[in-house]
Amino acid sequence: MKEKDYFLDDRPKKLSYSEVWEKFFNWARAQSLWVIAYGTGCGSIEIPPMVTSRFDAERFGVSTVGTPRQADVLIISGYLAVKTLKRVIRVYEQMQSPKYVVGLGACTVNGGMYYDSYNTVNLVDLYIPIDVYVAGCMPRPEAILAGFAQLMKKIKEGRADGWKQYIDNLDKYRKNQEKIIKNWKIPNYNW
């Protein structure tokens, strides 16, 4: 099998359903958030306490999966180097819609304490859409759970539409990504 067969050449499409069904499915989506186990920075150390006995995120239906294909939520946990950004974009595009992104820590908002670093991306939302920010350096598991509650509320109200924005403004996001990533070797569309 050729390598190309694993990717699609088409642009992603948006499918729409009737509102009543969407409301029901949004309710189900909010109750069952599968987080991909991928840590970009120091914040990923706060995820294990969140999903284990002490803070027990599973009672809200939040559980972890090991593959982007099945995941709903990508957590950008802390600072993001350019090297990591390539992987993050790739993971995000491999996730299946609807998908949500949680930005964890001050670094994802405006660079945080690495605002003047030569290697830390300051504004993550230029490159991928972010639905919920959790501020702090680092946010404690309680704060992350509060962030998840916020995300659930947004999903139930139908306002968590970052993935739709990504599809609509794909060219804009691509331009931003290509501006800082030299040597772009990944296929144009890889979902």
Binding site: V109, Y115, V121, N122, L123, I180
Partner: peptide
């Protein structure tokens, strides 16, 4: 950093 990654 400001030139490449921008600022809020």
């Amino acid at each position: 950093s400001q030139e490449k990654y921008g600022d809020r």
